[in-house]
Simulated assay, not measured.
Amino acid sequence: MAEPRVLKELEEELICSVCLDVYRNPVSLSCGHSFCEACIQGVLRNQRCPQGLLSCPLCSAQEALPTKLQPNIQLRSVVQKFLDTSEQNATPEEELKREVECEEEGESSDLRDEEILCDFCLEKPQPAVKTCMNCETSLCQAHLGKHSTKAFLISHVLMEPCDARVLAERRCSQHGKLLECYCVTDSVCVCMLCCATSSHRNHEIISVEEAFGHAQNAFPKTVQTLKKHEAAVNKSLENLLSQQEKIKVCSTVP
C-alpha cells in the first residue's frame, strides 16, 4: 500500500523544471542543475545571452557554452528504474490518459501567435503570465510558480508579459545590462556599469524603484499643475476668440 505514495514522492524529485515532466535523457550544467536534454537545448536556443555563454534557467548562473552537454548517468538510471516501475503499476485509466496526452501534443492555436508564450513550455507552449526582466524569459503560471519558489530568484523583477522589443528597451544599449538605476542628474535610467565607469559616475544615482516611488508621489501635484495651466490656456483662448469677434464686428461697420 505504501508503494504508490513512495512512487509519487520520487516522481516529484524527478521533475524537469522546464517541461514539468519526468526527466528524459537528463543532462547537467556546471552549476549542478539538471534538465531534459531536449528542454535545455530549446531554452538555450531562445536565450538572449552574450554569444558563447549560456545561462541556467533556474539560477541564472552563466558559463561558457560547452561543445557537448554532459549526461547525468546516475540520474538517467534512477529515472529509467522509476519509469519501469510506474509502467508495471499503471492502471488502465492512467494508460488511457497517457495516450490522450500523447495525441494532444503538437496541437497549436492561431491565437497563440498573438500571445506572449512561455519560454519554458517547449512542446505545448502556454500563454505567459509574467516576464522576468533579469532572466529575460516569459513564464506561464506553472513555471512562474517554480520560479517564485527559488530563494535566489525572489529579487528578480517581474512584469506583465512582453516581447523581445520591450526587453531590449530595459537593457543598457552600451553595456547590455538591466537598467536598475536612475540618474537624477540626467533624468535617465542607467545600468550598474554606467554608474561605475561612464559619465554618470559622479552623478546622483538612485534605484529605479525609488525613482518610480518619487514619480508616483509627485504625480498628483503634477496633474494639479497641468490643470492650472490648462485653465490658463483656455482663458487665453477665450480672450483671443473674443478679440477676434470684436475685430470682425469693427471690420463690418462702415
Rank of each mutant, 00 (worst) to 15 (best):
A2E: 07
E3R: 13
L7H: 12
K8A: 10
K8S: 06
L10V: 10
V18L: 08
L20S: 03
D21I: 02
Y23T: 01
R24P: 00
P26L: 04
G32Q: 02
H33A: 06
H33P: 04
C39Y: 04
V43Y: 15
R48N: 11
P50T: 15
P50G: 04
L53M: 09
L53Q: 12
C56S: 07
L58F: 00
A61W: 00
A61T: 11
A61N: 04
Q62H: 07
A64R: 14
L65V: 04
P66T: 15
T67D: 15
Q70M: 12
Q70E: 10
P71V: 01
Q74S: 09
L75I: 01
R76C: 01
V78I: 14
Q80L: 02
K81R: 11
F82S: 01
L83F: 07
L83S: 02
D84G: 01
D84C: 04
S86E: 11
N89R: 15
A90C: 04
A90W: 02
A90M: 05
E93T: 14
E94V: 13
K97H: 02
R98Y: 03
R98E: 03
E101Y: 00
E103D: 02
S109H: 08
D113M: 03
C118P: 11
F120D: 09
C121P: 10
E123M: 03
K124H: 08
K124N: 12
P125L: 02
Q126I: 01
K130V: 07
C132M: 10
N134D: 14
E136D: 12
S138R: 08
S138V: 11
L139W: 15
A142D: 05
H143T: 08
H143M: 05
L144D: 00
K146G: 03
K150Q: 07
I154P: 01
I154F: 11
S155E: 06
H156D: 04
H156L: 02
V157W: 14
L158S: 12
P161M: 08
A164I: 12
A164V: 14
R165F: 15
A168T: 13
R171V: 05
C172F: 13
S173P: 07
L178D: 10
L179W: 15
E180C: 12
C181R: 11
Y182P: 00
T185N: 00
C189L: 11
C191F: 13
M192Y: 14
M192K: 15
M192L: 15
M192N: 14
C194W: 09
A196D: 14
T197Q: 10
S198H: 14
S198R: 15
S199V: 06
R201G: 08
R201Y: 12
R201I: 00
I206R: 03
I206K: 09
S207G: 13
E210T: 15
E210G: 10
E210Q: 15
A211D: 05
F212L: 06
Q216M: 05
Q216N: 13
N217R: 14
N217M: 03
N217V: 04
T222L: 08
T222K: 13
T222M: 11
T225G: 05
T225C: 00
L226T: 05
K227A: 03
K228R: 06
E230A: 08
K235C: 04
S236N: 10
L240I: 02
L241K: 13
L241H: 11
Q243T: 10
V249S: 14
S251I: 08
S251V: 06
T252Q: 11
V253A: 07
P254W: 08
